[in-house]
Design a protein around this nucleic acid. Structure first.
Lengths: 271, 271
DNA sequence: GCCACCCTAGTCGTCTGACGACTGCGGGGC
DNA sequence: GCCCCGCAGTCGTCAGACGACTAGGGTGGC
């Protein structure tokens, strides 16, 4: 029982122990559950600086007692935050606060992107285009040699002689966009781009690979973007990235995919 | 209804090893816990259409058995998705899939925004500006009378004679930006704007109280935006919104807000 | 016939206790 | 000095039980 950071939990000392009715949410908005108490409590600790990135949380039993809940609900709350990218638990070691990096915290957003992908692909791609064009323009201003080399490497991987695995091609594609987004110097923007370009694009583009012309054209568009980045020309970078993404959108819109995803696993729209 | 969707226990994590693997797992610590199985399983059901918006999930016991886990981990997974805005549980009634609206699913993102507010406010505001200016431009093209009236109403609320409550002022401010974002016709963009306008605005409140001139100037900037929207002039709307947000950024940067001990506990209950 | 009330079954929310799996660290053997 | 092993600590999971709450139908009164 030694060695816990003093997590002064406001257990609401004045309240009667028997009155377990949490008056947290007086607006009657629905869920004053114990788990919510846990989530809000931990969030609060992070906000107030009691818990910082990389720091270790008290043990479950202790934290549970501190927050006035049992271990079950406590674990539910911790798990929820874990899936949000805020906490990370390692069996046998303990629970830690993550680096709170935007890329981590925006990861769950890709799920939303995937979901809405089916319905409103247009709206989604518009936003993605907005984000990526801006990222390209920003990157053109301040990209360094290292990032340029990384981008070049990604293109090389896409253009490897003798053909490349489709999966590898897509990975390199994603990597290229990733490098550009990172080079923008805005981590939040980069994280958003990553979230929007996550799995959907991968699934989609996968099918696009069946079209021979598409890969060649895609590669060419990427090269044009890279050239603009090398020249540190924001306008050109922006326009060329926009052109590239428009081409992708047109391609997808033209196909207007009937099945949701095209991976080997065949699924029929059981509507 | 033909009963609940049959939850065929296709837990089968090895469905398609090539595409299925979420590369989100950075460390690739190949330890898919039971809770992860639950989360992925439910996600998959939603993806495949087995579960649709508003639909009811099977009871915990059945679902747990179907996924091959106990009730504890199942609840953890459900709770995690609940906090992500994907599911909603009502005691005594059952568990339901939410409307899967972007605004719901992006709600947890505001937490990230709040966290990074302290550190990387610059990057964050840049992205917000990018999003909102685009939203304003889009809105100018297709905004209808109803939305214009709503925006006007928000401005009226901000300019009520005799002074307004600071809280009310901020609410109206948020409402205005919300209306503009909605009028853009892009729900994803609107949801992002909403998420990004979470706490930043709150900080502004606080400051707006102390500075009389700030409210007047803010109001004036809003009016300029609205005027451009009425004229259906995208360029003007974009520029004026950008100007407004730049002013806000300068304001905040100049103030370099004091200890974030603002109201950490949500909003203070009015009653 | 219509309505209000109560009552019962169904479901989620929480607690308690226990055991296994894994991690990290220090001591002992070589 | 280095390696192996055992040990305590911690998380992961399971099981059972009970309370709280909701929804729907049945019943009685009007």
């Amino acid at each position: 029982m030694a060695g816990h950071p003093e997590v002064d939990p406001e257990v609401d000392p004045e309240a009667d122990p028997e009155v377990d009715v949490p008056s947290e949410q007086p607006d009657g908005r629905g869920a004053p559950s114990q788990t919510d108490v846990v989530v809000e409590g931990i969030k609060k600790m992070i906000f107030e600086g009691t818990l910082g990135p990389g720091q270790r949380l008290p043990v479950e039993a202790d934290l549970a007692r501190a927050l006035g809940v049992s271990r079950g609900p406590l674990r539910e709350g911790v798990r929820a935050l874990s899936h949000l990218g805020v906490l990370e638990t390692r069996q046998g070691a303990g629970t830690y606060v993550t680096a709170l990096d935007p890329s981590l915290l925006l990861a769950p957003m890709s799920f939303l992107v995937d979901l809405h992908h089916a319905g409103g692909a247009r709206a989604l791609h518009s936003v993605r285009r907005l984000l990526e064009t801006e990222a390209a323009a920003l990157a053109a201003r301040c990209i360094d040699d290292e990032a340029l080399a990384a981008a070049q490497e990604a293109l090389d991987a896409m253009a490897a002689p003798g053909g490349v695995e489709p999966r590898e091609f897509v990975d390199a594609d994603i990597r290229f966009h990733q490098v550009v987004a990172q080079a923008s110097g805005n981590p939040v923007l980069a994280a958003l781009v990553q979230a929007f370009a996550g799995r959907t694009v991968r699934a989609r583009v996968w099918r696009a690979l069946t079209d021979e012309g598409a890969t060649a054209r895609t590669l060419e568009e990427h090269r044009a973007v890279l050239e603009a980045l090398r020249a540190h020309d924001p306008d050109r970078a922006r326009l060329r990235m926009g052109h590239h993404l428009l081409a992708v959108e047109d391609f997808l819109a033209g196909a207007e995919e009937p099945p949701a995803e095209g991976p080997p696993a065949e699924e029929r729209p059981a509507r």
